[in-house]
């Protein structure tokens, strides 16, 4: 079976800095994979390479067996990839409803379109007309994250890349987000970058650790958390505090 997404020796350089260094990663269909690593490990750059926002300097990206290394972002999106960016990237000047409508409108028309928008907005808790007419830039950070997740869900993607979906959230909000992601995962392969280890342990079965642009280790969460080397490079102080 071909993988949902596969990279072969993927390299991404910015000037003299090698942000992603010869990464070979394979995500199977239906998987929910977590990607962790300290700041500057190359997680966001990897996402940008996968989604076509940055052209790889070397290596290949395959989606469902098809090479997409040189594709434009909109072409990759049309093949079924959706992405939630690290900094919430929504249409700030437009209403909540319009944001989700735009996400769903590429594939749907008419009544089906409105039904999907309604369903998706309800799933992230925007039920009243008043809430849906708010402009995106009037919302809190967490709400904007949800809008972006809703937009992602409304695309009905084959694979979703989530860059720090729980950043800046309260405990309640984070738990709610875990539920949302699990719901999305029912029909979508997910690759998620996070720092919050509680969040990761609630979500992931398999974790990939990225360090200095390279894959450091790939294992289950429990094995990773017991890995002394990982602790050393990344978890360090934060990990001991969580213990």
């Amino acid at each position: 079976m071909t993988a949902m997404i596969e990279t072969v020796g993927l390299t991404c350089r910015f000037g003299g800095v090698v942000a992603v260094d010869n990464v070979s990663l394979k995500i199977e269909e239906g998987e929910l994979r977590c990607l962790i690593g300290p700041n500057g490990a190359g997680k966001t750059s990897l996402f940008k390479c996968l989604s076509g926002q940055v052209q790889p300097s070397g290596g290949r990206v395959l989606m469902k067996g098809r090479e997409i290394s040189r594709f434009h972002p909109h072409e990759i999106a049309r093949m079924g990839m959706a992405i939630k960016m690290q900094v919430p990237s929504v249409f700030n000047g437009l209403s909540v409803h319009e944001n989700v409508w735009l996400a769903a409108a590429r594939l749907h028309r008419g009544k089906a379109l409105e039904a999907i928008v309604d369903e998706t907005l309800s799933a992230v808790g925007f039920r009243s007309a008043e809430a849906r007419e708010k402009r995106a830039d009037e919302l809190s950070h967490a709400h904007r994250q949800w809008i972006e997740l809703a937009m992602l869900a409304a695309c009905k993607p084959a694979i979703a890349l989530l860059d720090e979906p729980a950043a800046g959230m309260t405990q309640d909000e984070m738990l709610r987000t875990v539920e949302l992601i699990k719901t999305i995962n029912r029909s979508t392969t997910i690759l998620v970058v996070e720092h919050d280890l509680e969040f990761i342990s609630l979500l992931a079965r398999k974790v990939t650790v990225l360090h200095q642009g390279k894959i450091f280790v790939e294992d289950t969460m429990s094995n990773i958390s017991n890995n002394a080397a990982v602790r050393e490079i990344y978890l360090g102080k934060q990990w001991r505090m969580a213990q």
């Binding site: 926002q53 909109h74 249409f91 700030n92 735009l102 590429r106 695309c155």
Partner: peptide, 24 residues
């Protein structure tokens, strides 16, 4: 129209627009 609304999204956030699969 649908086209006009998508055009407005280009102004708001071109990157997001293309990540949704539209060609800005």
């Amino acid at each position: 129209t649908r086209l006009g609304r998508i055009m407005a999204s280009v102004r708001e956030n071109e990157r997001r627009c293309e990540l949704l699969g539209y060609d800005p």
